[in-house]
Amino acid sequence: MDIKVYIVLLNYNNSQDSIECLESILKLQYFNYQVIVIDNSETLQYIEELQSWAEGNVMLQETSFKDILYPLEKKPLKFLSISEKDFLLESRNEKIIFVKAEENKGFAAGNNVALKYILNQNDFDSCIWILNNDTIIEKNSLSDIIEEIQKQNDSKTNIIYGTPLIEYENPEIVQSIGGWYNTKTGLTKHVGEGILIKEAILKFEKIVEKTDYPVGASMIIKYRDLESIGLLSEDYFLFFEEIDWISRAKKINGGVKMLPVFGIYHKQGNSTKSKIKKKKSEFIDLISMKSRITFAKKYNRKNLGFIYLSILTLTIGNRIRQGNFKVIPKILKVIFDTKK
């Protein structure tokens, strides 16, 4: 029998991306799953829109992925909408569960609401798929993920799996196969970004040698490994949660494993709204810098001085060249606040 997979989505001030993602999930050829959508939005508007969609009252807007998403029979779905407090009290059987978070405490904390619930189910053979709501997935993607995981050496434990991400707007191109961490600067970058899918498939094993962590838009973990490694660290509001998770796994002889499953399309930046005229918003810029320092203080202290120097020279220098002088005092505040 197929193992159960909990699919976890985080929704923030947006229902349309989540609806598109959910519609692709409903077309999966793997049927033993439950979807948990944690809504971190500031108002009730977006969870109400999700409920209305599940009731069959809201149609998906026009999309270029008709081959993946259509035709989808429109009918009321078996779903539950519930508060975070009540959600954690008992087991739920509905195929789709919408959970209104008590407050928005970031990516890790939002996903942890679902992970805490899953750990309480004692479903020891299950898997958890943390999936960005601004993705869509091909119908065979989950079957392929489970097949690849089952091929792995059963003696290996404390593994966090990831999948490549494909550009939503250019589905011939890889967005990332994973992430790489520069220990000297504390910066990260996508591995395999911009190459053709055909090339990525041919060179997959070589490419993943450079991968330090899976990109958080698509991460899979076995229930038993989640028990061992623990929840996502809430030391971060956004960014670096994935590499922190991997770093903790490595401390108990675990690590990362990238799976050659090319069926996840990602609208990069939509879930954080980080693309504004191709520039990061100030909030995202500062929060990523804070997370960069927080991670280094935990796992890369020997290079912390280099990282501060990189921010004081390269980062501030770039903002000066951009004419963005008003952000410089805020960058300095992040540095001095994190030094405390």
Rank of each mutant, 00 (worst) to 15 (best):
K116L: 07
K116C: 04
Y117F: 13
I118W: 07
I118L: 09
I118P: 12
I118H: 09
L119W: 05
L119S: 07
L119C: 06
L119Q: 10
N120E: 14
N122V: 00
N122G: 00
D123L: 05
F124N: 06
D125W: 05
D125M: 04
S126I: 05
C127I: 13
C127Y: 12
I128T: 14
I128K: 01
W129D: 02
L131Q: 10
N133Y: 06
N133V: 03
D134H: 05
D134N: 06
D134L: 01
T135P: 14
I136G: 03
I136V: 11
I136R: 05
I136E: 00
I136T: 04
I137S: 08
I137H: 01
I137F: 03
K139S: 13
K139E: 11
K139R: 12
N140G: 00
N140Y: 09
N140A: 08
N140W: 05
S141Y: 04
L142A: 11
L142N: 09
S143F: 03
S143A: 10
S143P: 04
S143K: 13
D144H: 08
D144L: 13
D144Y: 02
D144T: 11
I145V: 15
I145E: 02
I145H: 04
I146D: 00
E147T: 15
E147D: 14
E148V: 01
E148H: 11
E148G: 01
I149S: 06
Q150M: 08
Q150R: 13
Q152P: 04
N153D: 15
N153A: 04
N153L: 03
D154E: 13
D154Q: 15
S155D: 11
N158E: 05
N158Y: 03
N158M: 05
I159F: 06
I159G: 02
I160D: 01
I160C: 06
I160E: 01
I160V: 15
Y161I: 04
G162K: 07
T163G: 08
L165F: 13
I166R: 08
I166A: 06
E167K: 09
E167C: 12
Y168R: 06
Y168D: 09
Y168W: 12
Y168H: 11
E169F: 15
E169G: 13
E169W: 15
E169L: 09
P171K: 07
P171D: 01
P171R: 10
E172T: 14
E172V: 08
V174N: 03
V174L: 11
Q175S: 09
Q175W: 09
S176Y: 03
S176C: 14
I177V: 14
G178H: 01
G178P: 10
G178W: 00
G178V: 05
G179W: 02
G179T: 13
G179R: 06
W180I: 14
W180P: 01
W180E: 14
W180S: 15
Y181V: 12
N182F: 07
N182E: 10
T183C: 03
K184T: 12
K184Y: 13
K184Q: 13
